[in-house]
């Protein structure tokens, strides 16, 4: 498979009142044509910032190092019309559709806007295409929905509108940023299934950001786990769940309650998630890791290849197969 997107050694610093703060440190990942990559981690781990850097949506004053190459083009160097063209090829489905759709414009306007302004599609054609797209995501009576305003639709329906709209402009890469987190569980499953189907039909690449490891496993080919602004593991999605390489991935897997047995107490990862700028030197996860030893804290961990995946842990080989049992002693 040829790589559509390659992120190499990406470091992002944001401008805060107190100066520049690092939110991503040396992140690398790649997505092939038609591949779905999961991006998993706790809040503040840098998942969303990675997506924003790819779509060039970082806030003003942000500093980026490293490279993002999309279809052979250096994304970080783009500006003007080329940047807009890049953004048109990378569709983003945001977490909260209600906030991300202009409340004073009709669904019709929202859905057809980029077709009309960027692709010069006549209004009538654009509307027909929007109606078809709504049917594809399982919305009845599209003609009526198109005439309505966002506040007249439910959250699940709005997220479907968002997905339909994202696909309407025929993007090459879909960035789904926690796109089902704001929905209730049944709606979440429906929306997820629709997204997955449509993506596969079109052979679309996707970066699927979530904090739900199992959800990522279900829809993605590979999963990347981030912690404190760094990638700690990249693995085939179906393997990550049963055989995680990094203690953090293992802890994430274990934190998910098992549906078959009643737990006395839900297992949580001790401590709180850290952001890149507050991470300690040496291994960033050491403060919360039950396998940490002195050498972990002494030097920066490097990412190494192991069994077809990549892991950022010096004890990975030694701990192979033991990380899950030992994660919560």
């Amino acid at each position: 498979m040829s790589e559509l997107l390659t992120v190499t050694d990406l470091t992002v610093r944001l401008k805060m009142d107190s100066g520049m703060r690092e939110v991503i440190t040396g992140t690398s990942l790649s997505i092939a044509q038609g591949e779905a990559m999961g991006l998993v981690g706790e809040s503040g781990s840098g998942k969303s910032m990675t997506a924003k850097a790819i779509a060039r949506l970082l806030p003003d004053g942000a500093e980026t190092l490293g490279s993002v190459v999309f279809d052979g083009v250096d994304v970080l160097a783009l500006s003007g019309d080329e940047l807009r063209e890049h953004r048109a090829q990378v569709a983003v489905v945001f977490q909260d559709p209600r906030a991300h759709i202009n409340p004073v414009r009709r669904i019709d306007d929202f859905m057809t806007e980029s077709l009309r302004t960027l692709r010069n599609v006549p209004k009538g054609d654009a509307r027909t295409r929007a109606a078809t797209a709504l049917e594809e995501v399982g919305i009845d009576d599209p003609a009526k929905r198109l005439r309505q305003y966002p506040h007249e639709l439910s959250g699940g329906m709005l997220q479907r509108v968002m997905i339909a709209t994202a696909l309407l402009s025929e993007p090459r890469l879909l960035l789904a940023d926690e796109c089902t987190t704001a929905l209730d569980v049944t709606t979440q499953a429906e929306v997820m299934a629709i997204l997955d189907d449509l993506r596969r039909e079109r052979g679309l690449s996707m970066l699927f950001i979530t904090h739900d490891l199992e959800l990522a496993g279900a829809v993605c080919d590979r999963t990347t786990v981030m912690y404190a602004g760094q990638v700690v593991e990249t693995r085939e999605a179906r393997l990550l769940h049963g055989d995680p390489l990094h203690p953090y991935s293992a802890a994430l897997v274990d934190a998910r309650p098992d549906i078959d047995s009643t737990a006395d107490r839900l297992r949580a990862i001790p401590g709180r998630p850290l952001s890149a700028f507050e991470a300690p030197s040496g291994c960033r996860f050491a403060t919360r890791c039950s396998f940490a030893q002195d050498s972990c804290r002494e030097h920066e961990q490097v990412i190494t290849e192991l069994d077809g995946g990549f892991v950022r842990c010096e004890r990975a080989i030694e701990l192979r197969g033991k990380v899950r049992e030992g994660a919560h002693v």
């Binding site: 807009r84 890049h86 953004r87 048109a88 906030a99 991300h100 409340p103 806007e113 960027l118 402009s169």
Partner: peptide
């Protein structure tokens, strides 16, 4: 956020300002 959506879709800045920022 909805302005960010408009930007993320690659719309020209003048359209974003006129149709989303000023309108609202």
């Amino acid at each position: 956020e909805h302005v960010q959506t408009a930007v993320s879709r690659g719309l020209p800045w003048s359209d974003v300002v006129r149709r989303h920022v000023l309108r609202n």
